[in-house]
């Protein structure tokens, strides 16, 4: 691993050294290093690129890190990662992709992640996306996330696109059985001429299922963003969808939250807001001695935290 590798890993997975617990580090389309533990097994797939991550039932307080880095220009890396989370397990999964593209061809990573979460299991999934490098080639990330939650399973997902991703289309779908709970927190910042689209569909199929989808974004320069979350209530359930965007410069943001109830006992709410940075907030911070630009950055940083 060289310095670019370690910096990318630090940005996307807060990794300063080899992580504790199970891990798989993928670089430029191939596995770089991998470790399984007694309770978490990581098995490379034989039929297509990717890995199976198998977490034994009842595993507690363990973590899996599966970062991906791309440093070669012109790569198109497609990978399938399947998670099998045993009943009553409680684990942290840190994923993420960092692209350093110094060349003139596009670098692309499409991660297809499927989660099978067993009864009463709990996962916290953190995914950060980041791009850098001064080549003319694009940095493209099109993640697909599929979540299946058994009864009482809890899934918390934090998906963050930090900076430098030229084009992204995120597709997330989830199926929730009775008493399952899904919390999705999405944070996105686009700048330059970047484009980002996020489609999320959550289907609440069992009584007592609940979901909360919170999307916060900042669109700068002439970037474009589209959000399309949809919560579908097929049983006695609760869901809350919230999209909140700060728009700056010549950016475009489109929020299209949708809610569908196929059951009279479904309670589903959506809220969406798009607006400039509030002027009073800017002025307040300027009275602390900050310039307008410093104040803007503090507000954006807090908003996307």
């Amino acid at each position: 691993m060289d310095r670019i590798d370690t910096q990318l890993l630090e940005t996307i997975a807060d990794l300063h050294e080899i992580p504790a617990g199970a891990y798989n580090i993928r670089k430029n389309g191939a596995g770089l290093s991998r470790r399984s533990t007694a309770n978490i097994e990581i098995v490379p797939k034989t039929d297509k690129p990717g890995i199976d991550i198998i977490v034994a039932p009842g595993t507690k307080n363990e973590s899996v890190h599966i970062p991906v880095i791309l440093t070669e220009t012109g790569l198109n890396d497609l990978v399938y990662n399947d998670f099998y989370i045993g009943e009553d397990a409680d684990v942290l999964i840190v994923a993420g992709c960092g692209i350093h593209n110094a060349g003139d061809s596009d670098s692309q990573h499409d991660g297809i992640h499927t989660f099978h979460i067993g009864k009463n299991a709990h996962i916290r999934y953190i995914e950060k996306h980041y791009g850098e490098g001064d080549g003319k080639g694009g940095r493209i990330l099109n993640p697909v996330t599929v979540v299946e939650q058994a009864e009482g399973a809890v899934c918390e997902m934090e998906m963050v696109q930090v900076r430098g991703v030229d084009s992204t289309v995120r597709t997330t779908t989830a199926e929730l059985a009775a008493d399952a709970k899904l919390i999705v927190t999405e944070r996105l910042m686009t700048h330059g001429t970047q484009e980002a689209r996020s489609d999320i569909e959550v289907r609440l199929n069992g009584n007592g299922a609940s979901s909360q989808i919170v999307s916060r974004s900042v669109a700068r320069d002439s970037s474009k963003q589209i959000f399309h979350p949809n919560a579908v209530g097929n049983a006695e359930c609760r869901a809350h969808v919230q999209c909140d965007s700060i728009i700056m410069d010549d950016a475009t943001v489109s929020s299209i939250p949708a809610i569908t109830a196929n059951c009279a006992d479904a309670q589903i709410i959506h809220e969406a807001a798009i607006g400039r940075i509030n002027n009073d907030q800017l002025i307040k911070l300027m009275t602390f001695g900050m310039t307008e630009e410093e104040a803007e950055n503090v507000i954006i940083e807090g908003f996307l935290k």
């Binding site: 907030q281 009275t287 602390f288 001695g289 908003f303």
Partner: peptide, 22 residues
């Protein structure tokens, strides 16, 4: 405003703004 702030003037608003995430 920031130049005055640096010289030592401070003002607590009648209606303080709210900040998400701070």
């Amino acid at each position: 405003i920031p130049e005055r702030a640096k010289r030592g003037i401070g003002y607590a608003f009648q209606q303080p703004p709210r900040f998400k995430g701070l």
